[in-house]
């Protein structure tokens, strides 16, 4: 189960909406033990595409350092699907870098954004519940 704060949830969805018409992406900083996300790191999509995303490597390094200096880790990544459902594509699965990460998809296909989270190990995709708290 992935735990988001209200602030992280809104920051993530807002970043995806402002990224339109391209896919948007970012990293999630938190506690790997509890899967509680504390910080959202919106990043530039250097692929600048409606169908692909690549997290800016320099922003990834900055986010990684920031999370580690706070005693946290990067525990996941989010990105938008602009015209498809919030489910990992074959590309997402092939390129998933870390089986311990949480892979959050934000679908902007419908009027109301849909946020879902997955664990991806090898080619096995497992959806996990997402909680959003006001904390």
């Amino acid at each position: 189960m992935l735990h988001l704060t209200d602030a992280v949830y809104h920051q993530m969805v807002a970043h995806c909406l402002t990224g339109l018409p391209d896919e948007a992406c970012g990293l999630l900083g938190g506690d790997p033990g509890t899967a509680a996300v504390v910080t959202c790191y919106p990043t530039r999509n250097v692929a600048a595409s409606a169908k692909l995303y690549t997290v800016d490597p320099k922003e990834h390094l900055r986010a990684d350092r920031d999370a580690e200096s706070a005693g946290l880790s990067i525990i996941g990544v989010f990105h938008s699907h602009t015209h498809t459902e919030a489910y990992p594509s074959p590309t997402d699965v092939t390129q998933a870098p870390d089986p311990t990460w949480h892979y959050v998809l934000v679908s902007l296909r419908d009027i109301r954004p849909v946020v879902r989270s997955y664990r991806i190990e090898g080619d096995v995709i497992a959806e996990e519940p997402v909680t959003v708290s006001s904390r």
Binding site: C25, A47, A50, L52, T54, H79, S89, P90, T91, T94
Partner: peptide, 10 residues
């Protein structure tokens, strides 16, 4: 390297 996307590159 963190990447992916809706398109099926395969």
């Amino acid at each position: 390297a963190v990447a992916g996307g809706a398109v099926d590159l395969s």
